[in-house]
């Protein structure tokens, strides 16, 4: 076996770039999973949707920024569909997400016309690409561009969730009952949160398609697990250092980069890459179990002080 340290270091810029691209996606997952307190499975379809829209727009001569903006808008629409399934039609949110995800499979096929579409870096003016990792001026270096994009999103979300509207979305996820009692239309805020989340995921898909030079129908498979892994790893690594909202979003981004570095390390160790998805799923499962186990097996019983929840 060839375990050359040089190989590992050569692969690192690629991992960091991928981690930063997926960070945008993971931040989207954070919005639903942690702020709205729902697990939105739409994202597996939305990532591919963003890639498909971006690639097809660029093939048809659109500017890269316009193509990415359209991908974001397509993501908003996907979130709207899941949101309406859930709030207007009363479908449980997990099922609503699965329904949208399934329909997006057809939508993505129709957008691309076939199951994959290439985007040649030599023929199109791409924003990010695995060819732009080295020997580029900083303002064209993919890692720098991705880092700036992540920072801009974090800043924008930090601002938004401090506004009246943003606070009402947070209140909805924290306690829907209280939110309604304070005059918040929780159906609206839930839909809004789902839309924002899916917009970010589609934007991430647009970046990913450019980076790898193609979009394909299965690029979003298991995306939710990678997003959750990033959220959980970020919290495990950094939550003790701060509770500021912007810092929490930064932790998610850091978690995503950490995930791809670990992945790269596994590949470098020649672990069978067929197993990687299963390993990711197991890692997420264990981390999700930790708070449950803590509560169940490692808590000393204390006398409950007046909390009749079920009365």
């Amino acid at each position: 076996m060839n375990l050359s340290i040089v190989n590992l270091f050569n692969a690192m810029p690629g991992s960091v770039a991928q981690g930063l691209i997926w960070a945008v996606m993971a931040i989207g997952v954070y919005l639903t999973f942690r702020i709205l307190d729902v697990a939105d499975l739409t994202v597996d379809g939305t990532l591919g949707l963003g890639g498909a829209v971006c690639v097809m727009c660029m093939i048809n001569g659109m500017n890269v920024w316009a193509a990415m903006a359209l991908a974001f808008a397509a993501g908003l629409l996907a979130g709207l569909v899941t949101g309406l399934f859930h709030t207007f039609m009363g479908i449980p949110v997990i099922l609503a997400g699965i329904l949208t995800q399934l329909s997006l499979y057809s939508v993505n096929l129709k957008i691309m016309g076939k199951s994959n579409q290439a985007l040649n870096v030599d023929r199109y003016d791409l924003l990010v690409s695995l060819r732009y990792l080295r020997a580029m001026p900083p303002w064209e270096n993919t890692i720098v561009i991705c880092a700036v994009i992540v920072a801009v999103f974090i800043a924008a979300l930090y601002w938004f969730f401090g506004t009246e509207l943003g606070c009402s979305v947070r209140a909805t996820g924290s306690n829907g009952n209280m939110a309604r009692a304070q005059g918040i239309n929780t159906a609206f805020t839930t839909v809004l949160g789902l839309m924002l989340s899916n917009g970010l995921v589609a934007f991430s898909g647009a970046m990913l398609a450019q980076y790898q030079g193609f979009a394909d129908i299965s690029m979003g498979r298991g995306a939710i697990v990678i997003g959750l892994a990033a959220v959980i790893i970020g919290e495990a690594l950094l939550s003790r250092f701060g509770t500021n909202f912007a810092f929490k979003l930064f932790s998610v981004a850091a978690g995503s980069v950490a995930y791809y570095l670990v992945l790269q390390f596994c590949i470098w160790l020649h672990i069978d890459t067929d197993l990687l998805k299963m390993l990711s799923a197991l890692v997420v499962a264990v981390f999700l179990a930790v708070p449950y186990w803590k509560g169940r097996y490692f808590t000393k019983p204390t006398v409950a002080k007046g909390g009749r929840r079920d009365a």
Partner: peptide
């Protein structure tokens, strides 16, 4: 949520009336 414009409420369960996070 629209009636809330007229009505203030306090619930039996202390968890119910506030956003804990």
């Amino acid at each position: 949520h629209r009636r809330a414009a007229y009505i203030g409420r306090v619930f039996q369960d202390p968890m119910m009336g506030t956003a804990a996070t």
